[in-house]
Design a protein around this nucleic acid. Structure first.
Length: 586
RNA sequence: GCGCCCGUAGCUCAGUAGGAUAGAGCACCAGAUUCCUAAUCUGGGGGUCAGAGGUUCGAAUCCUCUCGGGCGCGCCA
């Protein structure tokens, strides 16, 4: 509908230019927006005001010229000048009601475009290191990324959902050593745990797993493990130094095979847990991309070579640096360390190059807000590789702060005192968690009220929306109990009977859905969909209270059933995109 | 110190490719069910869009400064 009117405007404009009434400069794309109140019709354009200066005419005069040249349309009742020069479009009743027909006909596809292979993007999100269970901070990135990916897909993009598994870094070594030390404890050794190790209880669980498999084969005495190591931070030393040496000691004592056993068991165990956790949260990925494979395949070397060929690398202090400062970053960055190992940043560059080589139009990254320093350096890398930095898009998700009984829930990852995503799901349920995480703009800090998310009351927006869906289902169950059936054809023939104010508002709301999807996709803003669903549910509940659906008159009964069935379909479609269930009964 | 983000009703937030009288939920007050789920609905009060300048027909939205809050500035990941 919106596109139809934009086309009408365009026709009128071209006509005026052709006739020489308006000059060539006036050939611009007309903008159309929804009106705020139906007093102003359905759609309004500010085109006349935008053109006023170029045309050298007062806006209202231009508006009149355009209106006079608008081609006739079966859907537009009339257009009129309003205020300083708006052109308001009023629709015919038929045009308003066709949306019901469209929805019943298109079902799950209503408002969604088929995937266009020319617009293929990757959305990378979560990508938490497999060093422990996901916590509530990851939850928002997961909910946002998953919803965004679904919305982009609904808007016609072909979408790859990717999780970058950092299974190759130093943090993984620290994890493996943490598990080994806990394993030694389980074997009966008494030893101190490094400041920098992973403290959580889950480490014991993995250690137990390893021990069940291989027994005490890798038990060593406390002295053998720690003698000769530099002091840890709490012993007056440097904790990084301490743990690095501890890693080397582990490799010595365990041998390559033994070390690998701890390393791989740890990673696999945690990764499997993360996958289950996300699946339980309704978050699925198309591709779990391993950093290790990236390295083994030579992709990192390939990317570094590309930077070298483009003249962006230099050597200093034994390391290889990327001259990022010449490409908009604050400072230069190391890609190959003095010890010969590539940095994490080098992997990032390689992964980005890999995405480009796989032909994606855009690589979208969902990062926590604390990673905003990465934007400049990744863009610099893109430019350095000779790629278009605009094909790289980084979206930052601000932190979520949990509140319980009105008080902030304190958390600290380091000490292992954090609430896991799993605990959150168990406490408030997956549906409420998914909704609360995306109900606010991603660039806004989120206050997550646990008590509210849990409450089964009128204050909880999730239940409000789901209840609207369940209520509609209930109406159809009652219809069955009355031994009646819903006749869609009769309803369709009676669309002109939808004249109650509540019905008109509902029609308006339903017809907005495709525009909401388009906007939410374009602005990367799933919260717009969340707000829309609330608004649609509000209109439905108001309608429910004002009109009886199951009336004797079969025309009125069936047309109202058509209408609420359309509402049910749109609610279900929208909830699906947000990863929230649409219950039949509550 | 430098850089990025944010500041809208008592609270939590929408609204930013400039548009008409700045919206919603919660909270508060007053009401609604012989009828499809009251997890619902109807009505009401409530604003210096942090502040000050500027750009223009028009600014919550764009520019500059000030104040307030968050985050980032490792051969860490």
């Amino acid at each position: 509908m919106k596109e139809h009117i934009e086309e009408l405007l365009n026709q009128a404009l071209l006509h005026l230019i052709r006739d020489g009434v308006l000059n060539e400069d006036c050939d611009i794309e007309p903008q159309l927006e929804r009106t705020r109140t139906s007093e102003h019709g359905e759609f309004a354009s500010n085109i006349a005001m935008v053109l006023a200066k170029r045309a050298g005419m007062p806006p209202r005069e231009i508006a009149q010229l355009i209106i006079d040249k608008l081609p006739p349309s079966r859907q537009v009742k009339h257009a009129e000048i309003a205020g300083p020069g708006f052109i308001n479009f009023y629709l015919n009743h038929v045009a308003l009601t066709t949306v019901v027909k469209d929805i019943l006909y298109q079902g799950d596809n209503y408002g969604h475009r088929p995937p266009n292979p020319d617009h293929e993007v990757t959305v990378e999100f979560v990508s938490a290191n497999p060093t422990g269970p996901l916590h509530v901070g990851h939850g928002r990135g997961a909910a946002y990324g998953a919803s965004l990916a679904s919305i982009l897909a609904a808007a016609g993009y072909k979408v790859q959902r990717e999780y970058y598994v950092n299974d190759n870094g130093r943090q993984m070594d620290i994890l493996a050593v943490s598990v080994w030390l806990r394993y030694l404890e389980l074997c009966g050794e008494q030893l101190r745990f490094p400041d920098n190790g992973y403290q959580g209880d889950y480490i014991y669980n993995i250690a137990r797993e390893v021990r069940n498999e291989i027994g005490d084969k890798f038990r060593f005495k406390e002295n053998d493990v720690f003698d000769g190591l530099p002091p840890d931070e709490s012993q007056g030393g440097d904790r990084e130094n301490h743990i690095d040496e501890l890693i080397s000691r582990a490799e010595e004592l365990l041998g390559h095979e033994g070390y690998l056993a701890f390393f791989e068991t740890s990673v696999n165990s945690i990764l499997t847990d993360i996958q289950k956790d996300l699946a339980g949260f309704g978050v699925e990925f198309d591709h779990w991309f391993s950093e290790k494979e990236l390295e083994d395949s030579g992709a990192i070397a390939h990317a570094i070579e590309r930077l070298e060929d483009n003249g962006h690398l230099y050597k200093k202090d034994g390391a290889t640096w990327f001259r990022a400062s010449a490409l908009g970053d604050e400072k230069d960055r190391v890609v190959i360390r003095e010890n010969g190992r590539t940095t994490y940043f080098a992997s990032d560059i390689a992964y980005f190059l890999n995405k480009m080589e796989r032909g994606f139009e855009k690589a979208i990254y969902v990062f926590g807000a604390d990673h905003h320093g990465y934007i400049a350096r990744l863009r610099a890398a893109a430019t350095g590789l000779g790629e278009d930095p605009d094909r790289l898009e980084i979206l930052l998700v601000q932190f979520a702060v949990l509140y319980r009984a009105g008080k902030k829930v304190q958390m600290s990852t380091r000490s292992g005192e954090f609430i896991t995503l799993r605990e959150l799901r168990e406490e408030v349920g997956s549906d409420a968690a998914r909704f609360f995480y995306v109900m606010r703009s991603h660039e806004q800090h989120l206050d997550f009220d646990l008590d509210l998310a849990k409450s089964r009351s009128n204050e909880n927006p999730v239940y409000y929306i789901q209840y609207a869906h369940a209520r509609i289902c209930s109406v159809f169950r009652n219809l069955e109990q009355m031994n009646e059936t819903h006749n869609e054809a009769i309803g369709e023939a009676a669309l002109k009977l939808l004249t109650e104010p509540n019905e008109t508002r509902l029609l308006r709301e339903l017809s907005r859905y495709p525009e909401v999807i388009e906007s939410a996709a374009r602005l990367r803003a799933p919260h717009q969909l969340a707000h829309y669903l609330q608004a649609l549910a509000t209109e439905f509940h108001a309608y429910y209270n004002s009109q009886q659906f199951l009336v004797d008159d079969e025309n009125i009964r069936n047309v109202r059933l058509n209408l609420i069935l359309a509402v049910k379909i749109v609610l279900a479609n929208g909830l699906e995109l947000l990863g929230i269930s649409a219950p039949e009964a509550m």
